[in-house]
Amino acid sequence: MKRGISFEIPNEYGTILREVLKPIDTTVFSWRIGNGESYIVVDDELDEALFSEDKKAIEGTELKKLLDNNKFYIVSADLQAYPKGGFTEIETYEDFIESHCELVLLVVDSCYFTIYCRNKETIELLYKNAADCGFEDIEYITEENDTRTRLSVW
C-alpha cells in the first residue's frame, strides 16, 4: 500500500514548495507548522522567516498567498494539512492514520522531500507532478520501504 512519495530537488532559491504542492488545493486546509527553517528571498538574499516562529498554524488561503507571492529557501520544513478545524499531535505513521490529517510534508537538508498522504489519488498526482517538474529519485513510500520511525524533521 502506498503511503506517499519521496524525491530530491535542486538546492536553490525559488518557488519549489509552490511547485511541489501544485496538485493540491492548499486553500481547503488548515496547516500546522512544525519545526523548520525557511526564509523569504529578497534580491537573492535570505530575508525574514517564511513561517514566523510564533505562528504554529496558517490557513490555506494565507499559505497560498505566501507561496504565490514570494521566492523562498527551505532548509527544513514540517507541514501538516488538516480539514478546517483542530490539529492533533502526530509523531508516527500510525498517529497519522488515526488522525484527521490529510497530508504531511517534510523537507530535510533543503533537498529531500517526503510527503505522506491519506488520499491515494492525490499520491498519484503528487508523483506525476514531481516527475513533470524533473525532480530526482522519485519513489513511492510503502509499508515495505518506509524506514522513517517519526514523522518529523527533528
Rank of each mutant, 00 (worst) to 15 (best):
D78V: 05
E144M: 07
K65R: 15
A130L: 06
N129L: 01
D109C: 12
D95G: 06
E62N: 08
D109R: 11
N11A: 13
C133K: 10
R118K: 15
E89T: 15
F96R: 05
N11R: 13
R18Q: 09
E136N: 11
E98K: 13
C111R: 15
L125K: 15
G134V: 08
K65P: 09
S38M: 06
V41Q: 04
E136S: 14
L50Q: 00
N145K: 07
V41K: 01
P10S: 08
E136C: 10
V107G: 05
E121Y: 07
D68Q: 07
E121G: 09
A77R: 01
C101E: 00
G134A: 06
I115F: 00
R118N: 08
L126V: 04
A77G: 08
D43V: 06
Y116R: 01
K71E: 13
F7H: 03
E8F: 15
L125R: 15
C133E: 11
I141Y: 01
L106S: 02
L66P: 02
L103T: 02
G14T: 06
V75K: 10
L21H: 05
T27K: 04
Y127C: 06
T122G: 03
V41L: 08
H100C: 09
L66S: 00
N119K: 10
F87N: 03
A81G: 02
T61I: 14
R18S: 05
A49V: 14
T61G: 13
Y73K: 07
N11M: 14
W31F: 03
K120Q: 12
D44P: 09
Y93P: 00
K128T: 11
E144H: 09
R32F: 03
C101P: 04
E98H: 12
I138A: 01
A81N: 05
E62W: 03
N119P: 08
E37M: 11
T61K: 13
F72K: 01
E98V: 09
D68I: 00
N69H: 10
W31K: 04
E139R: 11
D43Q: 13
K128Q: 15
E124Y: 08
A57E: 13
A130V: 01
N119R: 08
L67S: 02
D68T: 03
Y39E: 03
E53G: 11
S30Y: 08
F51P: 02
K64G: 04
D68V: 03
N70W: 02
N145P: 05
D109W: 12
I97H: 11
K22A: 09
I97Q: 13
I115W: 04
E45A: 14
E59N: 08
Y140D: 04
K55H: 11
T122K: 07
A81W: 04
K56Y: 12
D44G: 09
L21Y: 00
T15M: 10
A49P: 10
I58R: 04
S110G: 07
L79P: 02
F135G: 03
C117N: 06
L105C: 10
F96M: 04
E48F: 12
D109K: 11
V75C: 12
S110E: 08
T92S: 06
F7I: 00
E53A: 12
Y13K: 09
S76Q: 07
Y127M: 10
I9K: 07
D137K: 15
Y112W: 12
Y82Q: 03
D43N: 14
A81Y: 00
G36I: 04
K71G: 09
N129T: 09
D137G: 12
G134E: 06
I74H: 02
